[in-house]
Nucleic acid binder design. Structure first.
Lengths: 171, 171
DNA sequence: GAGCAATATTTGAAATGTCAAAGGTTTGGA
DNA sequence: TCCAAACCTTTGACATTTCAAATATTGCTC
């Protein structure tokens, strides 16, 4: 490549958005992923140390907490973004710990509905309060206005992604 | 609770920032988590369908791709944010597939260094190119200026989180 | 030079994760 | 009515995940 060609290329890069423009989406994704991992690990560690629970269990219980009548396993699977087979084992273990109850409704015997027990509700209440505090602490250095902006803009990302999925997925 | 008390509470909520203000960090976290899961699942599906690879394998190979001399397993563990024990199995399977090579350097026999094989480099090159394209596609509806902003602001979140970890973690 | 702390990886147990196939149940025509 | 398609959950094979304990090696100290 001659010098003049090189200069031309550089100009084009600058015009198009400067190097970073090229892989912006990739860089955003890597940063989202590492940040999410960091926060997840911290929450996982605290849930384990303070409540003896796991993050997936917490997620599942969160869904049941706001649906006091319980949820079908398939519905739980959608809401937690966890596969059906996985939900089976998850609920199984929570039932063993007395936090969740499984019921088969009269109308349709294909269905299994999971509900929080009283013990489950109590435990989740405590975990949820702590969880919210942990997040506030972890994000304490971030301007609330920025937090708001992020919430909105990540919503836009989620929308875009939802509209460009290859599989049979949709939100 | 009387009606007047109830009204007072409502007013306070509004003054303080309207319901949403209260749990902003929690809401941001939930949205980050679900968005990350969504993107991860899409990438995982495509890696599997088009290359027969898994996301953790892809991540690990990405680190080795930019360090042609290889990396010690402990270093791989830090960079991929995966535990030591996990790296062992991951590298083991990649070695079985002929994508990665394990070497023990002369100087220190405690150490294992993993390197990409020629086959591994070729495969990863193809995966990386596709991967970048998938991300561009998925985020196609998001204004590049927003993507840039998100990259910066999520960096701020990551910083804040890093400074408020309970364990012996730091970045 | 013997022993002990520090370092690096592996191992083992338990939980989570995916996918595909298999099991029951319901439902809606023919 | 019967049966095939659709629906819901479970199962089984395998990969990934964490944590803690076990191994192996090095390096330092006395």
């Amino acid at each position: 490549m001659t010098e003049s060609e090189s200069a031309t290329v550089d100009l084009e890069i600058i015009v198009q958005g400067t190097q970073e423009g090229k892989k912006l989406e990739l860089r955003l994704w890597l940063r989202m992923l590492s940040t999410t991992k960091l926060i997840s690990q911290e929450i996982r560690r605290r849930l384990r140390n303070e409540f003896g629970a796991t993050l997936p269990q917490f997620d599942l219980m969160a869904q049941l907490y706001r649906e006091r009548d319980g949820l079908r396993l398939g519905e739980l699977s959608k809401r937690t973004m966890v596969t059906n087979g996985n939900v089976t084992g998850l609920v199984e273990r929570l039932e063993t710990d007395g936090l969740v109850l499984r019921v088969t409704p009269d109308g349709d015997r294909r269905v299994t509905v999971a509900k929080l027990t009283a013990k489950g509700e109590t435990l989740f209440g405590a975990m949820a309060a702590a969880h919210e505090g942990w997040l506030r602490d972890m994000m304490a250095d971030v301007d609330p206005a920025i937090v708001s902006e992020l919430w909105r803009d990540i919503g836009a990302v989620k929308s875009s992604v939802s509209n460009h999925l290859s599989g049979a997925d949709f939100d």
